[in-house]
Design a protein around this nucleic acid. Structure first.
Lengths: 221, 221
DNA sequence: AAATAACCGGGGACCGGGTCCCCGTTTATG
DNA sequence: CATAAACGGGGACCCGGTCCCCGGTTATTT
């Protein structure tokens, strides 16, 4: 994975970051993801540092702007979720089972944490982000279309419906690191999925939405 | 409603509050409910006062402790939701339709706002609160049982499942007062309800929970 | 293994926003 | 009309988050 880029190159100009520096940066991002999930992206810097087992200065050195940190976390989280979607599509033959697996897997990754991040305060149009979002949408859209074409998923729902409901249902209650809650969430996700299954049991108002619709609608600012 | 308690009594000791004072108190509670729904119970006192069209001093005079205000708001919100449940049971002959009506009605009242209030910081065991919670549980439990006995609602779900999922799905995204989002929420609620309908399309892990279970589990503190 | 430079960590000063009170003014009541 | 209760907003206080400084530590280089 990590190519030996700066190995033979003149290392004097950019002497390659130290090993522990990279490790620390990684620990920070992980800690931040966990904290964001639980307390939202406004959580104090010092707390994140403590959770990461790092001095706060290290945190400020790596991410001078909070924006940078949020950006990094969102990116990393989206990548994980995308991978869950791709693995589900690949390894699950039954189309609806694939959808189930993705949903529960995404819940385990705490997609719900993406929600509070939409509270402004970070660049939604950054190229990296758009790229990652497109990858995610493509992967999930694939799951949805396959299930719909197989007649297993009702056709009046879209990726947006799935993602938003998924996010909402898995959003952590602030404070309580309740253990029993997790099991509870799985029940709700499964119930929601049952509602998604074809044939449709009711008629929905409005129309199915894509991720693009979401991004546009959610922030009229 | 308001009995003339202090009318003939020696009014010197407690000379009955002035009319505008009562009106102001009411406006404050209303404003607080709206603000809590949108921004959580931590919203600055001054903001609430401004929204209520009152000086901040009036707010502090009426609710010296934030706890008091939260308590009042929760109570008022629960009462509204209970009423929705009772009206639904009473006026809707079809048992599942009653459940639908309650769910959508409760969403309109913004039950989701109750969630962030569980972030500690207020007395869960206050007699008034317990009483109101029991009334609410009884009303909703009635809806659930009727639908289950009629064979319209799957039997592996309980009041707790409905209430928590309902709260989660309707929780407002902090910041954006997005208009389109509301319509979106209705879609998700209807999908979830479809999942609740009998016959069950999947097998759920764990077991159905009551409100009492919720209260106990959610705060191991 | 020693030298060197990059990196780390935590203690504390600064700053902004929320809380809460004081007091001159307004308004319901009898 | 007199009186006292209630109002309102301006500002002082205070706390918690941010951000920097500097002495110590640890990975790299020869």
């Amino acid at each position: 994975m990590t190519s030996t880029v700066a190995d033979s190159a003149p290392a004097r100009r950019v002497p390659r970051p130290r090993a522990d520096a990279l490790r620390n940066r990684e620990r920070i991002v992980t800690a931040a993801r966990e904290m964001f999930v639980e307390f939202g992206s406004q959580v104090p810097y010092d707390e994140i540092a403590r959770r990461a087992g790092v001095g706060n200065a290290t945190l400020y050195r790596n991410f001078p702007e909070r924006t940078d940190l949020v950006h990094e976390v969102v990116l990393s989280l989206m990548a994980r979720v995308t991978e869950v979607a791709e693995r589900a599509a690949e390894e699950e033959s039954d189309t609806f089972a694939a959808l189930r697996r993705f949903t529960l897997g995404a819940a385990d990754e705490r997609v719900g944490a993406l929600c509070p991040m939409l509270d402004g305060a970070f660049d939604k149009d950054h190229p990296d982000l758009v790229a990652e979002r497109d990858r995610l949408e493509e992967a999930v859209q694939g799951l949805v279309e396959r299930a719909q074409q197989a007649g297993r998923l009702r056709t009046d729902v879209g990726v947006g419906d799935l993602m938003v409901a998924l996010s909402q249902l898995t959003r952590p209650l602030p404070g309580s690191g309740c253990a029993a809650f997790d099991q509870f969430v799985r029940r709700h996700l499964l119930l929601f999925l049952d509602g998604l299954e074809a044939p449709a049991r009711s008629e929905l108002p409005g129309k199915a939405a894509t991720l693009e619709d979401l991004r546009r609608d959610s922030c009229p600012s």
